[in-house]
């Protein structure tokens, strides 16, 4: 076998085996593999104690949204909350609740959400919280594997914390 033929055979074998080697495997694309719910236990977190109450308010919001409990989720939002996502904006709590909120709840209720990383910082009456999550969900017959990032800003109002800004961004997990 000359050098050219040898290279041709090797290239063909690599080309044939690549799809198998690079595929995720069918086990990752079954709806039954998704366990709906939200997990934060394994997240890498860096949260100062002073931000604990604000992060707890954000957690209540996230859990309520994922559970489809919009009244509970709305209690954590400032009436003038600004929510940015995918180039769009919702400029008040009512606008969000009458707009994307029900679609978000509908999407998240059957999704498996895993919080991977969270950082928070305090500055006076403001706390910002940056979170990175992985979302697995079914859309029709297709499984979506999403890396989702969230920036939340909370403001202290009296003794409680309210979410005054949220920015969500998502991309497909490669």
């Amino acid at each position: 076998m000359n050098t050219f033929t040898h290279r041709l055979v090797m290239a063909s074998m690599l080309a044939l085996s690549a799809p198998i080697a690079w595929s995720h495997g069918t086990e990752q694309h079954k709806a039954s593999m998704i366990e709906a719910g939200r997990t934060t236990a394994k997240a890498s977190v860096s949260i100062p104690m002073a931000a604990d109450d604000a992060v707890a308010a954000l957690e209540r919001f996230s859990n309520a949204l994922a559970a489809g409990d919009l009244p509970a989720a709305s209690q954590e939002l400032s009436p003038t909350v600004l929510i940015l996502e995918s180039g769009g904006a919702e400029r008040s709590r009512d606008e969000y609740l009458n707009g994307h909120a029900k679609h978000d709840a509908e999407f998240l209720k059957s999704a498996q959400i895993t919080l991977n990383r969270r950082t928070a910082s305090v500055s006076g009456d403001l706390v910002w919280v940056a979170s990175e999550s992985q979302i697995h969900a079914m859309k029709g017959e297709q499984m979506l594997m999403i890396l989702s990032t969230e920036t939340a800003v909370l403001q202290k109002v009296g003794k409680s914390w309210q979410i005054v800004h949220l920015h969500w961004s998502s991309r497909a997990q490669k």
Binding site: S86, E90, E95, H100, F107
Partner: peptide
């Protein structure tokens, strides 16, 4: 979605476009 202004987006905030 009208709530996303003139930008076309999925109905959920968490789905990539």
């Amino acid at each position: 979605d009208p709530h996303a202004g003139s930008h076309s987006s999925p109905s959920s905030s968490f789905e990539p476009e």
